[in-house]
Design a protein around this nucleic acid. Structure first.
Length: 359
DNA sequence: TAGGCCATCTGGTCCT
DNA sequence: AGGACCAGATGGCCTA
């Protein structure tokens, strides 16, 4: 199933994935990480895999010791007495001796280990992908299939923005992102983007949306403080459209959104990285999910991660994921979270887009 | 408890 | 022959 999905979205994410997963550095890192995990990690999957993996590897080691014996054994055992009298033509059917069976078993064990490693590499690549799509949480990861779908949509959305050369409507943007996603994932993404899913899924005139029963009356270009649905992503340096430099703090919105949706001219508290106030209107998140206490916790966590930098400037030029790591820049795994003081003046991968929007 | 997601094992196929 | 890749089967975990 995963492979089918890969082939479905691969044309869109191939370059991205290739950059992340196929670099020798990356693979080596993943492997060493994996080997490190075998001793036991907090990751449930790794722990499970690690147990069986180490078991398999110890078996492998044991069996490889016997391999020479088997080689010697094989010659004599393969030609049994019954085969001598066999005048049949065609390829000799080799008898499955104990040694052969043993060797086959060893091969199988090795193949299993390789397969595990391969799948771990694949999962690492997927993790890297999770970190750069618009909704990232360590605690509640997007499923594999949803990650790929969201990545595809994200690429398409960015491409659309570049193609049109204009700021898309925030609702359209979210719609693009959520196309084909499951309802829970749609909720999750909407939560990350501080939107009420109802508004972009059901409102016919979604470009101007309003939240009934909520203090939030949102308009993409409104200058009211209700625009806090996009809090924390804009820089304190932000000076409004056409104003000063725009330094993005979030990576998930194209910069045009920052310019378009942040209250013009001001640098309100909620745009500050330190803002810890309400980031979403009551009832804004978790539509259809139920905003239980736990859910709210998760949502808060999502929002935090969403607004965190998933990329790093790393001092020189733009580094983005492992391709940045290749040049000695920050690896996506090593990118510091928002609050750790590495974000000052950070410029995201949309720096170019930002320039584009402001030229 | 059903369904979704996942890791792992396994055999098949293709390629080097 | 061996490795990479793939897809089916299986069983565990989690959540609604």
């Amino acid at each position: 199933m995963l492979s089918r999905l890969f082939s479905e979205v691969l044309p869109d994410v191939q370059r991205l994935a290739a950059d992340w997963a196929d670099t020798p550095d990356e693979v080596a890192k993943v492997k060493s990480e994996h080997e490190g995990h075998l001793g036991g990690e907090d990751d449930l999957d790794e722990a499970r895999g690690g147990d069986s993996s180490s078991r398999a590897e110890s078996e492998m080691a044991d069996e490889e010791e016997d391999e020479e014996e088997e080689e010697e054994e094989e010659g004599g055992v393969d030609e049994g007495p019954e085969e001598k009298g066999n005048k049949k033509r065609g390829p000799k059917k080799r008898k499955t001796s104990a040694a052969r069976q043993e060797r086959s078993k060893v091969r199988r064990v090795k193949a299993n280990a390789r397969e595990r490693t391969r799948m771990h590499d694949l999962n690492s690549a997927l993790d890297n992908l999770r970190k750069v799509v618009p909704c990232y949480s360590k605690t509640q990861k997007l499923s594999k299939i949803e990650t790929l779908r969201l990545a595809k949509n994200y690429i398409l959305a960015l491409g659309e923005i570049l193609r049109n050369g204009k700021r898309p409507d925030v609702v359209s943007y979210v719609q693009m992102l959520c196309k084909g996603l499951s309802q829970p994932t749609t909720n999750l993404v909407a939560g990350c983007l501080q939107l009420n899913t109802r508004n972009f899924l059901t409102e016919p005139d979604a470009g101007r949306f309003h939240m009934p029963g909520s203090p939030f009356s949102l308009h993409p270009y409104s200058s009211s403080s209700s625009s806090s649905y996009r809090c924390r992503l804009a820089s304190p340096n932000y000076q409004g459209p056409g104003g000063g430099p725009l330094n993005l703090r979030g990576h998930s919105y194209p910069s045009g959104f920052e310019a378009a949706y942040a209250p013009g001219g001001a640098s309100p508290d909620y745009l500050s990285p330190d803002y810890e106030g309400q980031r979403s209107p009551p009832g804004c998140l978790g539509v259809g999910v139920g905003a239980s206490g736990k859910q709210q916790e998760l949502d808060a966590e999502r929002n935090y991660h969403y607004s965190s930098m998933h990329y790093s400037r790393a001092g020189r030029g733009l580094t983005f994921g492992p391709s940045g790591a290749r040049g000695g820049g920050a690896h996506s795994e090593n990118i510091p979270p928002f609050h750790e003081g590495h974000h000052e003046g950070a410029v995201g991968p949309y720096e170019d887009i930002s320039a584009f929007f402001h030229n």
